[in-house]
Write a protein that binds this DNA or RNA. Structure first.
Length: 379
DNA sequence: AAGCAACCCAACCGCCGTTTC
DNA sequence: TGAAACGGCGGTTGGGTTGCT
């Protein structure tokens, strides 16, 4: 059964021959395509208008980019897909020279498989139930557990194939809002100056970048007088969109935000520590001060043992051990690291976090501004 | 070398929203 | 106002290619 637009006429199907391509290309170049249904007739093609349109858009268009997707493109697809879902046409608009079909194929043949391999639901980018169960079964929740007793909790997040399938990057590359923080913090150490309430630490010209990131809706952190305030700026209303107060380090609440900030079960929250959770709940970027506690110190040592650079560490995905339990907020000069289970899986976890609770916490998940609306607006 | 399976990707299908008559 | 035509989109399919046994 043919498509309604061409069911009445005899049309050719299947792959396009070079001669057909030539005819279509010549016609569109000369006359444009004001009416696709008239194109095949005028161009002398035994095809339906839809088929011509598709061939032009996906193959013959002169501005098409060819070849494999770059790391940047893959990252963009991941980021936008996380917000928009399977809206390939919208996603493709963020990738000049790429078609929706191309993006869709790349997703289905590459990115989707990597997500699944990582134990993530490709639709939601959250952990698949099986992965969560596994994690819980190994005691990743509850009060402080030593990961050395629990190696599997980290192992299940480990990418089995790294950079296979011809994909541009391993999974869990840091994504937009979080990435911006990472970038800004990397180039501007001390960016998150919790000792200066309400301010990003403006280190000369670098501070400008940070302030810009903040303006664009990325979360920022500041001291709230004994607590920590994490704020998001509303991109459309040019004002603070939402703020979460990680209060005073003494809370015993089960607030998901407190969990997200890595301070469950009444542990003292260190105002010198902030954690930004990726939407997948499987990648965190953290701002950590040196000398802040055994868990972090151990993690840092582990990273050094593995000879991992910061960028590599940030690329690794798994959720972190909590950023809690003591540690002073003394020094300046923040260190930036990701506390991943791959890196620290058997060494770093000093307390628990609740994945379900984190997952239910939508605030970090695309809360940095109106992501959807902004993306659509951009299109 | 042949057979098979997995993978990739171009093209099709069917639905939906908009426009035209 | 409603039906038909059209354009656009996401899901699906099937043929070609590649890799493995």
């Amino acid at each position: 059964m043919g498509h309604h637009c061409c069911s009445k006429q005899k049309v050719k199907r299947g792959l396009w021959s070079p001669e057909e391509d030539e005819k279509l290309l010549r016609y569109i170049t000369a006359h444009g395509h004001s009416c696709w249904s008239a194109v095949p007739k005028n161009a002398g093609l035994q095809r339906c208008g839809k088929s011509c349109r598709l061939r032009w858009i996906n193959y013959l268009r002169p501005d098409l980019k060819r070849g494999t997707f770059s790391e940047q493109e893959e990252r963009t697809i991941l980021d936008v897909h996380r917000i928009l879902g399977n809206r390939w046409a919208q996603i493709a608009k963020h990738l000049p020279g790429r078609t929706d079909n191309e993006v869709k194929n790349f997703w289905n043949s590459c990115i989707k498989k990597k997500l699944i391999a990582q134990g993530l639901d490709p639709k939601t980018h959250n952990l698949l139930p099986a992965s969560k169960n596994l994690l819980h079964a190994h005691g990743a929740t509850g009060s402080s557990s030593n990961p050395s007793n629990n190696p599997a909790a980290g192992a299940q997040f480990h990418s089995p194939n790294g950079n296979r399938n011809g994909c541009a990057t391993p999974l869990f590359t840091i994504s937009s809002p979080t990435k911006a923080i990472y970038d800004a913090a990397t180039v501007a150490p001390g960016l998150y100056d919790v000792h200066n309430p309400g301010m990003l630490m403006g280190q000369h010209e670098r501070g400008h970048q940070a302030a810009l990131a903040m303006q664009q809706g990325y979360p920022y952190v500041h001291n709230n007088g004994g607590g920590l305030l994490l704020s998001f700026r509303d991109q459309t209303a040019a004002g603070v969109h939402a703020s979460m107060d990680f209060m005073n380090g003494s809370s015993n609440s089960s607030s998901s935000m407190e969990y997200a900030a890595g301070m469950p079960n009444g542990n003292v929250f260190n105002p010198g520590v902030a954690a930004f959770m990726d939407e997948t709940a499987a990648m965190w970027a953290t701002v950590v001060e040196p000398g802040m506690g055994p868990g972090i110190e151990m993690a840092h040592e582990h990273r050094q043992q593995h000879g991992l650079g910061l960028e590599e560490v940030v690329r690794l995905g798994p959720p972190p051990p909590p950023l809690i339990n003591g540690g002073s907020s003394g020094g300046k000069g923040l260190d930036m690291m990701d506390v991943s289970s791959e890196v620290y899986g058997s060494a770093g976890t000093t307390a628990a976090f609740d994945l379900e609770l984190m997952e239910s916490c939508g605030l970090f998940c695309g809360a940095a501004g109106n992501g959807m609306e902004q993306l659509q607006w951009d299109c």
